[in-house]
Simulated scan of single mutants.
Amino acid sequence: MTDTIAPDCLLTLVVPSALEEDLLDLLRSQPRLAPGFTLVPAQGMGTHIHLASSMEQVQGRARRVLVHLVLAQAQVQPLIALLRQALPTPQITYWATPLLAFGRLGELA
């Protein structure tokens, strides 16, 4: 979130665990486009999911990380373009949804 543009969008990235650190390094290097984010462990299932390890093949699901970013809609496409250039893989999925509200329940120290 920036000081001048109100956040109105939630961008979710779904990332294979093997690419998590690369993605996080990239996001941390872009504080203007990705000022903060939340990570959530997840598992992916479906016809387009690549099962990388033997365990994933046995279980039929792949380890993933969801990365949630609260942004202004104007920041989404520049960030996606940067990610697409740095990590051009079909294994990273994203979606953006309208954000109805965002705030903090108290003051920051």
Results as ranks from 00 to 15, higher is better:
80 I>F: 05
86 A>N: 09
90 P>R: 13
91 Q>Y: 14
1 M>D: 02
54 S>L: 15
57 Q>M: 08
102 F>C: 11
38 T>K: 04
83 L>G: 06
5 I>N: 01
84 R>Y: 04
18 A>F: 13
78 P>D: 00
4 T>L: 13
74 A>C: 09
75 Q>G: 00
32 R>T: 08
22 D>R: 15
104 R>E: 12
97 T>Q: 04
28 R>Y: 10
43 Q>L: 14
76 V>F: 04
7 P>N: 03
65 V>M: 05
6 A>E: 15
2 T>P: 00
73 Q>S: 08
96 A>F: 07
108 L>Y: 11
55 M>N: 06
43 Q>A: 15
12 T>R: 12
28 R>K: 10
98 P>S: 06
13 L>E: 03
77 Q>G: 00
43 Q>R: 11
2 T>V: 03
34 A>I: 02
61 R>E: 14
68 H>N: 09
90 P>A: 12
17 S>G: 04
56 E>G: 12
64 R>D: 02
63 R>A: 15
78 P>A: 00
8 D>H: 07
105 L>F: 11
22 D>F: 06
1 M>P: 07
89 T>V: 11
91 Q>K: 08
9 C>V: 09
42 A>V: 08
72 A>W: 02
53 S>C: 05
49 I>E: 05
23 L>T: 14
14 V>T: 03
49 I>C: 07
24 L>A: 12
50 H>A: 12
53 S>P: 07
10 L>N: 06
65 V>Q: 01
11 L>W: 02
55 M>Y: 15
50 H>W: 10
50 H>L: 07
69 L>I: 05
